[in-house]
Amino acid sequence: MKIAFSAAGADLDAQVDPRFGRCQYFVIVDTDTMEFEAAPNSGATAGGGAGIAAAQQIAGKGLEAVLTGNCGPNAFDVLKAAGIKVFTGVSGSIKEAIESYKAGKFQSTAQPNVSAHSGMGRGRRKG
């Protein structure tokens, strides 16, 4: 079973990145074999629609679930359409999170838990 993490680094010791759309890496783990692959998130530097770009990148990977800190409405729509469960509120290292996931400690979320643009710094009025 394959699950993906929004990650601050490219291996299993990396911390889970609280941002989905603008995380640095996606680490995709096969929880049966613990084999993993890491890829930079193409949404990280997107001008807009980062969550959509990020979700689209991993949507075709045959994932069971995405584990992240926060997930906004647009990314959530894409993941939902792709039939991927979303778990928010995940933190700590990926290794720890895998154990917690296997132990059934997380509950998948039925809706986005943050509004759009939450992964961007708090800025002034801008266009």
Binding site: I52, A53, N74, A82
Partner: peptide, 20 residues
């Protein structure tokens, strides 16, 4: 080609995000 990611294609799905 969408610079604003207002359209997503994956598997059998096409999703549009008109507000973007």
């Amino acid at each position: 080609v969408c610079a604003y990611h207002a359209i997503a294609v994956f598997g059998e799905y096409v999703l549009t995000f008109p507000e973007l």
